[in-house]
Each structure stands twice: as C-alpha cells, then as structure tokens.
Amino acid sequence: MEIIEHYLYTKEHEWISIEDNVGTIGITDYAQSALGDITYAELPGVDKDVEQFEQLLSVESVKSASDIFSPISGKVIEVNDDLVDDPSILNRYCYDKGWIVKVEISDMDETSNLLTADEYRNYLSSLDRNDGGADSSEE
C-alpha cells in the first residue's frame, strides 16, 4: 500500500496535505483498494462548513456505498469536478489527481488528532494482523 510521507492520515483512511491554512483532502490507497471500482462521488458544495471526523461526502462502488469523513474542520473552498464524470480517478491516482476537496482550515490544533505517515503505516499493519478493517459495506 502506497503512503505519502508528508501527508497526515485518519483511521478511516482519508489523507490531508496542508499548505499554509489550506488542506487538500483525499482517500488513501488502502481505502480505494477496499472500496473497489469507484463509480460515483457525491461532492460537497463549495462554502460548505465541515467538522473534523464528520461526513464530508459519500462515494459508491459498483456494489456498495460508503461515507468519507473530513480529517479537519473548516470551509470547503474548492472541489475536484473531474471526479463527477470519471470517479475512477480515485482508484487510479488517489494521492494526486484524485484529490477530492480543498478546505480552509479553521483550527490548526486539530492536526494533533491525525496520524503521521509512520503511525498510519503501523495502523495498517495492525489491521492486517486482525485480518480486517475494510470500511466498505458490501451488500
């Protein structure tokens, strides 16, 4: 599973990359692999206020629907419209072209609730040991 060193992560398998007070948010390689072929993304509207660890959007794969949570609180300032017509970008380029939203961060202290790349890597291996953890809800 690919992990980007300078990003921060959640236990729900979202990533955030922070520059100044703007966070770019997406889903991890583990998440896209567990979801399978992603066929639909319901993007939030620009200006929407989001709370840390609350639902940010929902995505669907062929046989299931799943919620994606926001790693941080703030206001959505940009969404990746390319995902509307081609959600498979989330499978193919989850860490770059597959970014989902950019958020103006309201409380930078919340980053202390997130995992570093090393912590996320350890978390993934603990899931492997428990033989589970995929957050997709199969029918």
Partner: peptide, 8 residues
C-alpha cells in the same frame, strides 16, 4: 439520471 445507483 446520474451515476448514483439505487440500492435494495
């Protein structure tokens, strides 16, 4: 009308 799927 969209790519969103109905579910049981």
């Amino acid at each position: 009308q969209s790519r969103r799927a109905p579910r049981q």
